[in-house]
Design a protein around this nucleic acid. Structure first.
Length: 277
DNA sequence: CTCAGTGTTCAGTG
DNA sequence: TCACTGAACACTGA
């Protein structure tokens, strides 16, 4: 469930399925990669703990428990939370989840609660990670993150300063989690499109007007996506999101402008030359 | 069979 | 330190 809106959706699911409940049993899948940070034996420490809250910064998601260690989740490219009876999101690059199947395919950890409820993390591609932290906010990876656009968007002035300090290409800067935590490939392309900025421009070359516009659009896109619970079919019709996939040469925006696909910083970048300068 | 894909990290270069 | 590249990780679905 990779970018900020999808992770926030996961946080909300966790809030309703786990917050206030005591963990009765922890089941770990046999997966040395996803458990590279902390072994299943260490996860046993969660048994008997109560979940106080589900927290998020950028794409990192963790639980505040009544005692450490606190579990910290990263969904990678294809991870997410599931609860019995939920309706799973379909990701552009994710597996097909069958709602009726339980436990879901690719489950990595199952948290069983005292009331019989359950919360599961799934991850088909195994690029996600499960960590345990004494103080999640104070330690890496969370401590290394930049601002969260939903929780702590910098002032227009500060945002422009941050851009002015970097010579890197703007698309790459937006993907840097130490700059804007939670922005991923489609959000970066979406906001550059909506702000009318060529993704190949250098960050420090944007003027104050462009910086201001980019910041406003970043907030607008993230707030909108979160407000519809990351269900992409509810994103506004005009968004590039709906038309950026597939790398077809004939791709066009809702307005009829041609969409080009190039590579920037190793990531596919969809952009609209007629609109982005 | 091949390859792209909502991500991160690390090694190496300049 | 910064900017950038390439590779690695891993696996599904088109």
């Amino acid at each position: 469930m990779p970018e900020l809106p999808e992770v926030e959706r996961g946080r909300r699911l966790a809030e309703s399925a786990a917050a206030g409940r005591r963990i009765e049993r922890v089941e770990c899948a046999a997966d040395a990669i996803v458990y590279a940070g902390a072994s299943p034996a260490e996860w046993e420490a969660l048994r008997g703990r109560r979940v106080l809250a589900a927290c998020r910064w950028g794409k990192q998601l963790w639980f505040d428990l009544d005692a450490p260690p606190h579990p910290l989740f990263h969904f990678g490219m294809s991870g997410g939370f599931r609860a019995p009876g939920d309706n799973p999101l379909k990701l552009a690059s994710g597996p097909v989840h069958r709602p009726e199947e339980w436990p879901p395919r690719y489950w990595k950890v199952r948290l069983h609660f005292e009331d019989g409820g359950e919360l599961v993390m799934t991850d088909a591609r195994r690029l996600g990670r499960l960590l345990l932290r004494a103080a999640p906010r104070e330690e890496p990876p969370v401590s290394r993150l930049g601002f969260d656009p939903l929780l702590a968007l910098p002032s227009p002035r500060r945002f422009a300063e941050l851009l002015g300090a970097r010579s890197v290409v703007i698309k790459s800067l937006l993907l840097d989690q130490g700059f804007a935590a939670g922005v991923g490939n489609w959000i970066a392309d979406e906001i550059l499109y909506q702000a009318g900025i060529d993704p190949r421009r250098r960050a420090r070359d944007l003027d104050d007007r462009e910086a201001k516009r980019l910041r406003t659009v970043l907030r607008r896109v993230v707030e909108k996506a979160v407000s519809v619970d990351a269900e992409s079919r509810r994103y506004p019709k005009g968004w590039l999101f709906h038309r950026r996939w597939g790398k077809r040469a004939e791709s066009k925006t809702a307005r009829g402008d041609a969409i080009r696909h190039i590579e920037i910083g190793g990531r596919t970048t969809a952009w609209v030359p007629a609109v982005q300068r």
